[in-house]
Design a protein around this nucleic acid. Structure first.
Lengths: 127, 127
DNA sequence: CTTATATTTCCATATTCTATGAAATATGGA
DNA sequence: TCCATATTTCATAGAATATGGAAATATAAG
């Protein structure tokens, strides 16, 4: 990811209501959540929610699919992962000060197999 | 770090000129760089640079120290690390989709020592 | 003390962002 | 078809941000 590509993603997350939406969608997981449900949960007008979701979608952080009358939004974890990689590697140059704490979290979640495998088993645990 | 604490950091980075400043300062390392040097390098007015640096400093991403007539700004890697931890753990719930790619980068940078468990060192555990 | 340099503070301006009601569009059901 | 529901699009008002010139402040040097 390039610096310019990271900007809309950072901007999308750099706002209270949108960060809240994003976190809600992370919790919802791959099944996602309908726009109206999110709006009710966060107590915002439908049109406002629509605009916020559009920003998140344009950044690529979430994607939408229609289901009947509802439109379901779900997080694109790949995009989020790419942002974290960009911030860690390209932006911070993989400095030890940054990486060391991350390594502990990442390894706790995905213990490296011998010979270092980087792919996550599809069924890895989640909270 | 809490969601609210992450916001000013994300906002600070979510802007083209400030992200450029930040990356320049990452490259400069712990020694930092004088405000004027940054302004010249990025071709912006001194007053504009001052305002941008203030945003970064208020977010805690950089800190300033005076050296003679110059004011030297340097990145606070701890803060950046905290942001990445927040995004990975608290925000994304340490999902495998997010962690797996990070683990590979982090381990490349800070290889887990041989014969050592992959538990996080107590000093960096949270929650 | 005076002058030059480095940076910040203050201020004005232009731009962008956020939020919302109202109207438009899409879908499903009676 | 007609109506209700779900969401988006549009218009717009108000807030926040970005930028840079001018003046103020701090430091250094002669």
């Amino acid at each position: 990811m390039e610096s310019l590509a990271a900007l809309p993603i950072l901007s999308a997350l750099a706002q209270e209501s949108r960060l809240a939406i994003f976190r809600l969608l992370v919790k919802a997981g791959p099944d996602g959540k309908a726009a109206g449900d999110i709006a009710r949960k966060l107590k915002t007008a439908a049109s406002t929610m629509s605009a916020q979701l559009l920003v998140l979608a344009n950044a690529g952080l979430v994607h939408a699919r229609r289901d009947g009358r509802s439109i379901i939004y779900a997080v694109d974890f790949g995009k989020m992962s790419a942002l974290l990689l960009f911030l860690t590697e390209d932006c911070c140059g993989g400095r030890a000060e940054i990486c060391a704490p991350l390594a502990s979290v990442a390894n706790k979640c995905c213990p490296p197999a011998k010979g270092v495998r980087h792919e996550a088993p599809a069924s890895s645990r989640r909270r």
